[in-house]
Design a protein around this nucleic acid. Structure first.
Lengths: 226, 226
DNA sequence: AACACTTTTATTGTTAACAAAATATGTCTC
DNA sequence: GAGACATATTTTGTTAACAATAAAAGTGTT
């Protein structure tokens, strides 16, 4: 567990990290009602710092709180999940554009190398959606950071990605989709390398749009029950 | 003061509201370091709920906290403020598109009526930037809500707008800009009324882009010191 | 047996005292 | 007098006890 590994900051930060990863990993399921005392014993902390962490998570939309009635993990409806991808589309489109303008050559080279490692991951971890998803997350993370747009990166990394990842575990990827996504990633990086912000934005928007359509299809097929 | 008027929710919520409005109104200036005990006496509450509120505000980016060294109001650099408008551009563009698809006819009629009242406000409150700004905020608020995109509205209303409003008070509007902005608002509403999402998105993006250019110009002129 | 009301219980919200850390102050040496 | 070290003070972080509210259980009545 990483809750002891960090240790550096304050106890409320610790609580925040623990809860956030627990939610993302699905250890705390969407809709699950969680009592404060139970959480305290589970993560070895007292209610003060815990409540501070709960407040932060609530404000980030990962928890919902009803006064005097406790908090529960947020539970997105199918349509809300789809809406999330529409937001991602425009925001990450912007991130890609700004990344094309601002990433250093070293960062771009690094990003290319990362994609190679992702390709290996896809081949090796055949079917293991977890590692594929983490590779995908890694890619988008780098673009967001590369935009040098502090607030944009903060919103993507601190809000949207956590929500998406929270549901990624139950979103079994279609066969062949990871390879296709990798190809899309490569084309985006190419556009960034050529400093073509407009193209990078276009390709990123199409990439996320494809992911959205994939999810919508699954919802219609009834494969995805939320 | 409205801190007593609400009263309904919990004490931490009260603290949150008080702090947020204080920051937005500029009573707590950007960069100002604020001590917990001082805030407690100012808002008549104890440190528990206050800390919970501070956590929420920190996670929303209105405060920055250094462990064991206190919190201070966030202070955007000129470039960060400009970046904020780039984010608004894509997000509110999306909001306008979805609003065109989803607002009810009644809501649209209401919105049109609101613009008329804004026009009166601009004429009457000649030079009083405050009321003009609030009218502008009102318009964007309605579009965000009208998108029916919960998360999008939450991000705009709960995060970005507070930051923008926080700086709007020291952003003296150029002469003639309010009238121009009103015209842009009218065209956006027209597109929404015609259910032309694509046009609404285009016009909204251009509208916010114009606002951004206006700010950039002022920064270059040295009028705006941040 | 079903409904309404009361009482109990458990959980959340709040408070104030305590511990730890960082800043500020003062003293000493060079 | 300037810099460095040690002390003191203030401020933040944490804890545990207390109060208030809401959910649950029980009781009585229709």
């Amino acid at each position: 567990m990483s809750q002891a590994a960090i240790q550096s900051q304050t106890r409320a930060d610790e609580a925040f990290d623990c809860l956030q990863t627990s939610i993302v990993k699905g250890e705390l399921a969407p809709g699950e009602k969680i009592g404060e005392v139970e959480l305290c014993s589970r993560f070895n902390l007292t209610r003060g710092p815990l409540r501070e962490a709960l407040g932060r998570l609530e404000s980030r939309g990962l928890l919902v709180r009803r006064p005097h009635a406790g908090v529960k993990v947020v539970s997105l409806s199918a349509s809300e999940l789809v809406e999330l991808y529409r937001i991602r589309e425009v925001m990450e489109g912007l991130a890609a554009r700004q990344a094309a303008e601002r990433m250093t050559d070293d960062e771009i080279a690094d990003l290319k190398a990362t994609l190679d490692s992702h390709e290996r991951m896809i081949d090796e971890a055949r079917g293991q959606a977890y590692y594929q998803a983490e590779g995908d997350y890694d890619f988008h993370h780098r673009i967001a950071t590369g935009s040098r747009n502090t607030k944009l990166a903060q919103m993507l990394l601190g809000d949207l990605y956590y929500m998406v990842r929270m549901y990624r575990y139950r979103l079994s990827t279609s066969a062949g989709r990871p390879h296709m996504a990798l190809g899309e990633h490569r084309r985006i990086v190419e556009a960034i390398a050529q400093r073509d912000g407009e193209l990078a934005e276009f390709l990123m928007k199409r990439h996320i749009n494809a992911a959205r359509l994939n999810i919508e299809k699954k919802i219609q097929e009834g494969v995805l029950t939320i």
